[in-house]
Amino acid sequence: MNQLPFSQLNNLSAPLRCHIRHSQPMAIKALIYYLLFLPFGMQSKAFELFDSVQVHGFASQAMFLTSGNNMFGPSISNPGFDFTELGINGSWLPLPNLRLSMQILSRRDGAWSNGSPVLDFGLMDYSYNFTSDYCLGIRAGRVRQPYGLYNDTRDVAFTRPSILLPQSIYYEGTRDFTISADGLLVYGEMRKPWGNLNLELFGGYGRTDNKETEYSFIQKTYYGTLASDPSFVGRLNYETYDGALRLALSGAYTSMRYKPNPSWDTLPRGNIGFDPILISAQYNTEKWTFSSEYSYNFFSNSGFGPPFDFSAKDTVENNFPELSLWAEVIMMDNEGIGL
C-alpha cells in the first residue's frame, strides 16, 4: 500500500543496501537521511488475581527525528515524541477450554489518535481437543486479525522487531482497520512431529469508524462516514515444533461503504474494496531472526464516479531480511509501484 505521506530510508551496508522509491514526486527530494528511534518499552510480568486470571501490561515511548517528512506529528529538525503506546490486558479461564480475554489500549500517534482508551480486543475463545494432536476452536467478539507474521501483536513494542513494522505490509494509517475486527473466527490446529499446522478463518465487520482509515483509502477526509460490509480474513500457518521455521499464507476480502453526509457532501455513495494476499516466511536462530513477506494487493473503488472509481492491482514487494540482535534491528523495506 503506497498511500503514504512519508517514506523511510533504511541505510544499510552492502549487500543489504536498499533504494527508496516513493509515489509522491515531492517526497523524492525530501529524503529522510537521518531517522532516529529511541524506544523505551516496558513489559509487566503476569499478575495473577486468582489461579486462572492473568493481567499483563505494556508501555512504550518513541522519539522521531527526521529531515524531510513529519512522522507522527512534527519531527523535522526537532525531535517528536507523539508516539506512545499503553496497554493493559486481562484473561480468565472459567473452564479449562474456555477463555475470556480483553485488552484496553491507549495510543498517541500524531493527529490520528489522541491517547483515548479504546477496546483493542475483547473475545470469548472456546476450544476442543479431539486428541493432543488435533484441536478445533471458535472465537467471538472483537478479535485480532490473523494476518502475516506480526499483525496479531503489532502494538506491543517487544513483540515486533522494530519501532515501526515495515509500512508496505503493516501500514500505520490502516492500523485500526487491520488489527482487529468484530465477528467470528474459527480455527483448527494439527500438531505433528514435523510441525504445527494452524488455519484461522474470520468473518465479520472491520473497524472503519476512524478518520485515519478513511484518509488511507480515500486520501482525504470527507463529511460522511465509512461503514464496513461483511469482510473475511484467513491465515494458514506452518511452524516447526521448535519454532525455527515459520511459513504463513494470509488473505483478506474486505469491503466498505462510504455514506455521504445527508446535509451536504462532495462525495457520493460508493464502495471500497481491499483484497490482499500475503506470503510470509521466518527463520529463527539463537540470536538472529530472518523474516520476509510478500504482499499482492487488490484495491477497487466503485460508485464514486471518475476520477475515484478504479480497479487496479498494487503489487507490494516487501523483502526484508530482518536481523534482531538485542536492541538493534536491521531491516530492508522495498515498496513497489504505487497506484
Binding site: A46, Q54, H56, L93, R99, R144, T153, T159, G243
Partner: peptide
C-alpha cells in the same frame, strides 16, 4: 523463542502465559 511464543498468545488474546 519460548518467551516470544507466550507473548504472541497473551497480547493477541489467544492464550495465557
Amino acid at each position: 523463542q519460548l518467551r516470544t511464543a507466550w507473548d504472541r498468545l497473551v497480547y493477541s488474546g489467544t492464550g495465557q502465559a
